[in-house]
Nucleic acid binder design. Structure first.
Lengths: 355, 355
DNA sequence: GCTATTTCCCGAAACGTTTTGGCTCGCGTG
DNA sequence: CACGCGAGCCAAAACGTTTCGGGAAATAGC
């Protein structure tokens, strides 16, 4: 026992900075540790007198409860994590903010991960979040992350998928996004209605699920207009500006230049726009451009981009809701929750030139 | 003792999901807890035989150490936090990524906060990070956050300031950014060299420090060119698009329209550009526009924006370095670390029209 | 063969909380 | 007066780690 005491002392001395503990508050307030605990979690009986003494001590000592100890004892941290593929993509920022705002309203804190659409990075984040014992995670998986991989590092943490969903079977408690096929289909119909018949597509990595759905919607629209999809006009990129640029170049300088390009995410639309400008084509007169995902400065571009808008913030909020409801053992909204998209018509599409 | 056992059992039963602990690994590997610990932290003596048995058990049980317990025992979490004012501003994303990358290389994890340039939000984040017992925080304070306020909730956590710095005296272990006055001065000189004499300025909230420095640099340039600064041309906004738009409108429709506008951050430059386009002025022929902070799609704008570029990523890396060096008790680089800015000349500035 | 040293392993304490059960008053009730 | 009861408080156990001191067995030194 006395050995222990000495040990303890040495410990304290070793750390330069010392965090004030509930024990010191107790001493200062002439109360027991349990009473202080009861007071800060304002539950149980604690007399007004005692309570004020404790609050005073807390203020005086600047006591902040230690969430590590708390989480350890409680076996729950009241926090969730969200990991997205690209924080520089405004769509995901909005998604994260939605998740954060909902979580805050439900008294959960959220940890943010930015995987750069790269499984290694995502794994690091998921691992770190798991070790921190978050109560659940909302996940927008990186493209090269098959569902099973994540499951193995996540143990049996509840996860809800947002935006993208896993292609392989993975157990999750919820999923929220949009009906990508339908959104792409109606976007394509818009292009068709303008008179376009040769439409190029720049799509993202098929492993993300959303991309294939969007291409699927695209071809569906073509087919229902009795147009045979031309596989050579469908290019597969990587959801970033570079590959948008690259494939737009291919498309624009290819044998049969399309009269319109449909990009299945905003970054690739940006890259395509750069390519168009670089080549010196007029958009939309020479080539129409249709993007996916809106962003706040889309109207600053010339031409102002026509896009299909996803309710990013709502997706994030709903994802957090699904997750937290599950954690708290509450029934929630029905799960594959598909929100409405909206075609925002601006200036980047017009009828094709007559030839 | 037997009572305790019962209690423990009840505990286990209560939690639906159960995380596997080091104790179970020990049992499975027929080793003691301390030996397993020694093995996972691969230190100390542990025989090859025993080690492999333990590793096998770990793999079989999918054991993940509990960082809460670890942090509690170690009195350090090997993690830092970074809180920035606006994640949708690409400058801060790059800064965060820089901090993250450096931290990863130093084996630290980082928690991210997005204060929306709002002290309430920032306080919540700082508090949450503090309760999580991060080892330090790099902070880009919200505009309405005087230094003292944060100190009181941060206790004696080491903080390094990035980009912005506190106006009031606050104790910090480091600060990194750019020489804002000098950067603004040389940017202004560029405008002067083009022949501009009436230059409007849209600046951010003075409480952030950087704004006043930039204005200071601006006036310095004017003065050294023997031009008397016109206070009515210096407008104070809020670092966001809306106020950039608003004040550009004021400037452009005011009595004496300037021939150039200098915005002290990128968001306001965007807002100003929107205003210019809205009014129907030609940029740069009618009005030159000069922004602060580069961003990856600045070249997609028409005109391509001329800006003074800050090395956002490097700022983040250096901030993390300063902080982590301090935490680890290592000497670091000299503190107010001022990195070089760079004027990126593109198309948004030209000589003013002769009148 | 006896001791000194190394090698390998373990028990127990501690980190800062929350919770449970129990203790002590003081008071009303039969 | 005995008794129960509720209010207010507390001691101690537990959460999952790491570390420290020490012990047993094997090895080396003489």
């Amino acid at each position: 026992m006395s050995k222990a005491r000495i040990n303890g002392l040495r410990w304290k001395r070793k750390r330069a900075k010392h965090h004030v503990t509930i024990r010191e508050v107790a001493k200062a307030a002439r109360a027991s540790v349990s009473t202080v605990s009861a007071a800060v979690n304002n539950s149980d009986y604690v007399s007004p007198n005692m309570r004020s003494r404790i609050e005073e001590a807390i203020k005086a000592l600047r006591y902040r409860p230690n969430d590590l100890a708390r989480g350890l004892r409680l076996q729950t941290t009241h926090s969730i994590a969200i990991v997205v593929p690209d924080l520089s993509n405004n769509f995901y920022i909005e998604l994260v903010r939605g998740a954060k705002d909902y979580s805050a309203s439900a008294n959960y804190t959220v940890l943010i991960g930015d995987s750069r659409d790269n499984w290694e990075e995502e794994r690091n984040y998921l691992d770190s979040f798991h070790r921190r014992r978050v109560d659940g995670v909302v996940r927008v998986p990186a493209v090269n992350a098959a569902g099973g991989k994540a499951r193995s590092i996540l143990g049996n943490l509840p996860v809800v998928y947002a935006d993208r969903h896993p292609l392989v079977r993975d157990s999750y408690v919820g999923r929220v996004g949009v009906d990508n096929a339908r959104a792409a289909e109606s976007a394509t119909r818009y292009l068709l209605s303008l008179g376009h018949r040769h439409i190029g597509v720049i799509t993202g990595d098929p492993s993300s699920g959303t991309s294939v759905d969007r291409v699927e919607g695209f071809t569906r629209a073509l087919r229902s207009a009795k147009i045979r999809p031309d596989r050579s006009l469908i290019h597969t990129g990587h959801n970033d500006m570079e590959s948008g640029h690259f494939h737009a170049m291919q498309l624009l300088t290819g044998a049969r230049r399309p009269t319109a390009i449909f990009c299945t995410n905003n970054m690739m639309a940006l890259g395509a726009l750069a390519a168009i400008q670089e080549i010196g084509l007029a958009c939309p007169q020479d080539i129409s451009l249709l993007g996916f995902d809106d962003f706040y400065w889309a109207t600053l571009l010339r031409p102002r981009l026509t896009v299909v808008r996803q309710p990013a913030r709502e997706i994030g909020m709903l994802a957090a809701r699904l997750l937290i409801d599950h954690i708290d053992g509450r029934p929630s909204v029905p799960s594959p929750a598909l929100l409405e998209t909206q075609l925002i018509v601006r200036d980047s599409c017009c009828p094709p030139k007559k030839e």
